[in-house]
Each structure stands twice: as C-alpha cells, then as structure tokens.
Design a binder for these strands. Structure first.
Lengths: 327, 327
DNA sequence: TCACAAATTGGAACCGGTTCCGGATACGTG
DNA sequence: CACGTATCCGGAACCGGTTCCAATTTGTGA
C-alpha cells in the first residue's frame, strides 16, 4: 500500500502540515527537514496528485487531441508541441481519435475531467457539437489546422499553398489537369487547399479542372487513381497530400507508365521519405515544427489568461522535385 | 466558476450524498431524480474527477510511454493499443520521450501521479533507474519491445527475424555482406536482431560480416552508408530498419549506383510506403497490430491482478521485394 | 389498522493533500 | 533581563467528491 502524507508525518514525528510545507518549500528548520527527508527517501513517498490538484487549481498538464498518429504531419506537429511544452515545465498528454469525430468530443470531456490546464485540438473539422462541448468544459482550447471563428486557431496557409501549386503547374505548361482531393468535411485540406489550386490555375486561364475525392491513405488513393486514369488522360495530377501522390505513383507505375514522362505529379506535405523516392516529388512543405511550437506557446498564454492573436498562420515553402515535366 | 456537487444539491434541495447517489446509480426516487436531472442540465455540471479518484481507486486511464511518434512501428503499435483499450472502456494517455531515457523515468512518475491504472512502456532499453522507478510507483507496468527478466514483456522475435534474413541473404548467394545496425543500448534491435542476422549467415558459413552503427533516422543512415561504401565493396547490405535501408538507398543512387544491380539491400519493418519505392524493399514485417492488441489486453489483466504470461512473443513474416539480387 | 420490511434520504466521516491561524520557541535589541 | 519580532510548528478547516450509517418515509401483508 502507498504511503500518505499522514504516514510520513507520523514516521517523522511531525504534523502533516509540516511535511506539506517541507514539500512545497515553506519555513521548516534544518533539523526537521533532515528527519522528513530521511523518511521520504526510505519510503519512496510520492504525493497523490489528485489530492494536490483538488486544492491547487493548476496541474501543469496540457492535453492534445490528434486525429491520428500515423501521419507525418501530425506526428511532426505533436513532437514539436511536446518539446516546447516540456521546456515550459508542462507535461503533454496525447489522445488519438482515429479520425472519429465523436471521439474528439469524448476526448475533450475526458481531458477536462483529468483537469488539464488547456487543450490543443488538432482537428479535421469543427461541428456544432464541438462548439457546445468546448463551451461546456470551461478550459482553454486551441484549434490547430482548422479555422473557426469562435476559437483561437493556428492554421496552415492552405489557400496560398494551393494557389502557389496551381500557378506552378500552369507555368510548366500543363493544361489538362486532374485534382485528387479529399472530403470537403475537412475544411482546410478539402476546401481551402483545393480552392487555392483551382484559383491558381484559373489565373492562368485553366478552368476545366477535373476533381476527384480520395481517402487519406495510400491504398485508397491508389485505387481512386486507377479509376481516374481509366476515364481521363491528364498531363498532370495534383494531389492533396503526399501520401495520396504516392498512391497515385504506385498505380501509374503498375500501369507501366512513368512519372513525369507520362504523367506529372505533385503533392502537399514534404515528408522526408520523398527524398528516397524516384522521381523526387514536387510538393509544398508546411512549417510543422513552427506550428507545433506556436501552438504550445499559445495554449500556455491562454491558460494564463493572456490575450492571444485570434488567428495565426504558419508558412510553407515550395519544393521543386523531379515529378513535374515542363511541356 | 465551476459548480460543485454541493451547489447542485442546494439548488435541487437535497443532500449532496443524494446527488452522488443519483450520479452513480443508487437508490433515488423518481421525483428526486427529476429535480436533480433538471439542475444538472441547467448548470452543465461535470463532476471533478480528481475528487472522484481520491476515493475510487480506479481511473480507467492507461498511460503509454513511447520513445517517439514519428516512426511507423511506434505509431502502428500505439494506434492498435488505443483501439483495443477503447473497446474495453479505457482511455489511453500517450507521452512521448523523444528517445531521452531520463524522460522515460520522468514520464513514469508523471503518469503515476495522474493515477493511471497501468502503464505500457515501449522502451529502447531498461536501465537500473527504470527498475527502481517502476518498483517505487506501485502501478502495473508492461514493457513492450524489450525483454527484461523482472517485468512482464511483449517483444518481437528479433533474433528469429534476423536469423531468417541472414539465411535468406546467404541462399541468394551473397558472401560479402555489410550489416548496418544501431546502438547496442537498444537490446532488441541493436543486439538480438543483429545476432540473429550474424548467426543466420554463420550457419551458411559466412562469418566475416562487417558491422556498422547508424542512428535511426534517414539522414544519418545515408551518411553512414556513404562512409561505409568508401572503404568496402559488399554485394549486399542488411539494414536494421527500413528507414536505414532507405537512407542507404539514397546514398547508393546519389553515387550513381543501382539497387539491386550494384548492391542488394534489405531492411526490417515493412512500412507500407515501401510499396511505392522502386525497387520494392526486401524486409521483415512484424505484427505490430497484434503486439498493440496484446499489450492492451495484458495491461488490463495486470490491473485486475490476474496472472499473465511473463514473456509474450509476437510473430513476423518475410516480405520478398526486388531489392535483393540472386548471384 | 398495525407491525415490519424496504426504499429513500440526510448527516457525518473519509480520501490525501494544502493552507490559514495561533501558540511556542528562538533571536536580537535596549 | 524584559520585550518585540521572526521563525517554526501543530491543529483544524477545507478542496469535491464517495460511502457508511442511522433516521425517516413508504409500502406490504395479515
């Protein structure tokens, strides 16, 4: 059985208030300190943080809700958040939702019950239910990757990134282009990024872009690409993520075709694995580390009641690979 | 300010014990139930779980300590653990350590303070300090990926996997082989897997294998490979992980050489991205999902005080890709 | 209608800490 | 040596729940 502060006090021959004071750096004489220290060492005593938090209102835990763990972007952001929070003496608790919206809600409640000081929600879309729940638990919540009016947000500049990609593809001389996107329920990737691409292309006079929808995983992307190529013959395919681009690449090479000779290909993400794949992928890398660091700093400010900028936008840079041919 | 059970009781005109009983399904009359329900709905009341856990000894939270989040293996295992724990009505709290051993210790203590019911430690090596800490916090701990006598463990069969790979490489006719491993402080990968490979090769009479050490990341693996190839000219390189193999592949192609024509290459992992890379990688896939599910089930048994098998070994299967040439 | 059991409820103690308050002791000063 | 002050320490109340126990109310059968 675990020792309590009362046991320690009894063993040291002092009152439990004295032990508590010792633990929290109050006024305790050297001789009593020594006695208490001895007992604590001998018993491996660890204070019960539930009891502590009952009175102290701060736990120094920050919860992070992530849609998945097996994506390059998410894990990079998570690692950066964790690193930065640790520097500020916070502990990060991560919960994964496997992309189930109801689990996001559930996790918000779970974390609030664990009395975390703040929650970073890496989201794929905010619903009314999210809104209600966040209101109900009165804990600061920072939304990452999606833009919502009601909350503080950190987002990628998906529209501009898409725009840049659209423009680039146009300057490379492509006119017959397919866009392989994702569901519109993901506002950032499904809507903004796509709109950016379309507008970037439109600016160059290309308006008849065919768009398709794929899941986020390689396997599905590969299948969708197969269907797409059965009915249309674009010179270039722009994919909403690098993973989707890899899926497309798989299908293309299965069909005995080559990138970029038969089809040009581009993605979004900038995973480091791209360096190994031939041809290297033309893509856009978002500053995921920066997003993570920013998120950590912002949530801390929020827990301290400071005003923070409502909307923060992370940058990106364009990576020109070998997967797009100039026509 | 958040409401407490006392406020609810006052507003409903009953004793707080009655509210508690209502919340936990005790004997409460319909009329009282209705009154309390009404008040709770109006106030958005959420019980303080710290106070709850103070008395109730179970929190239904399981902590998982992972060395990193940006590896295919770790995230796959994590997702599987999470999925299985959720089925059993547990919530998973994940803490990443970024491969710092001291953070593993720190995280064990942090999680014990959060009063999780059990901890799954995905480790890269257990030190004396681990041992002491795990003893001190009296919470069930299950070690995954490393074998330690003192604790319950779930491991991959690294030795057999290595052995299989060694044998295979020998049957393909390779005699001049380099092994690109990792630090021996990682017992499973650094020692057992390597020993398996060496023994597998030795069985075929190949004993003069040169071994080198790389970090786990692509970049470093690429650099080490460069140095290796400056001084030796093997026909095959066996890498301790797929990521290392990708790093080697990068260097090889930078040198204007080809896999498998100039060098045969093999790894361990079986990441799904391998399907996209040409040539596809010959590798060994561990049953990560199975490991995760097993880990979840085992830790639950442990929290319930059941006896569990001291050592559980997960299987693997061999994947023959195009990266090894028959000589 | 009465005795007795079952259902319902309130009060108090408890979980393991923190903190306020007041008394005891030690110390420095005139 | 007496006095004021700073330091140290113990006792008690409190945080927000759960649970035990006893009292009250309700319901049942004879």
């Amino acid at each position: 059985m675990n020792k309590t502060i009362k046991d320690i006090a009894k063993l040291a021959g002092v009152a439990k208030s004295t032990v508590s004071r010792y633990l929290n750096g109050g006024n305790v004489s050297e001789t009593t300190k020594a006695k208490i220290r001895k007992v604590i060492e001998e018993t491996n005593y660890e204070p019960n943080s539930f009891a502590q938090s009952l009175k102290a209102k701060k736990t120094n835990f920050i919860g992070v809700i992530a849609p998945t763990l097996d994506s390059y972007v998410t894990s990079t952001v998570l690692m950066a958040i964790d690193e930065e929070l640790r520097k500020r003496e916070y502990t990060t608790l991560i919960i994964s939702t496997s992309k189930h919206v109801d689990r996001e809600i559930e996790s918000l409640i779970n974390l609030s019950r664990q009395k975390v000081d703040g929650i970073i929600l890496i989201s794929t879309g905010i619903t009314d239910k999210h809104y209600e729940t966040i209101q109900a638990i009165s804990i600061p919540v920072l939304v990452v990757a999606q833009e919502v009016d009601a909350f503080n947000c950190i987002i990628n500049d998906d529209y501009q990134a898409g725009f840049a990609m659209g423009q680039y593809m146009a300057t490379q001389g492509h006119r017959s282009i397919v866009y392989l996107g994702v569901t519109e329920s993901d506002v950032a990737v499904g809507q903004k990024r796509k709109q950016g691409v379309l507008d970037g292309l439109a600016q160059a006079g290309i308006t008849d872009v065919q768009t398709y929808v794929s899941q986020f995983d390689l396997h599905n992307a590969s299948e969708v690409t197969k269907k797409v190529l059965e009915t249309s013959a674009p010179t270039a395919i722009i994919c909403a993520t690098d993973t989707i681009a890899f899926g497309a690449m798989k299908t293309i090479s299965k069909l005995g075709k080559k990138v970029p000779d038969d089809y040009s290909l581009a993605g979004f993400g900038g995973y480091n694995i791209s360096e190994v794949i031939h041809p290297t992928l033309t893509t856009i890398r978002f500053k995921n580390e920066q997003t993570g660091i920013q998120a950590a700093r912002t949530i801390i400010s929020m827990t301290e009641g400071e005003e923070v900028q409502k909307l923060q936008v992370s940058g990106f840079h364009f990576i020109e690979g070998e997967s797009v041919k100039k026509i």
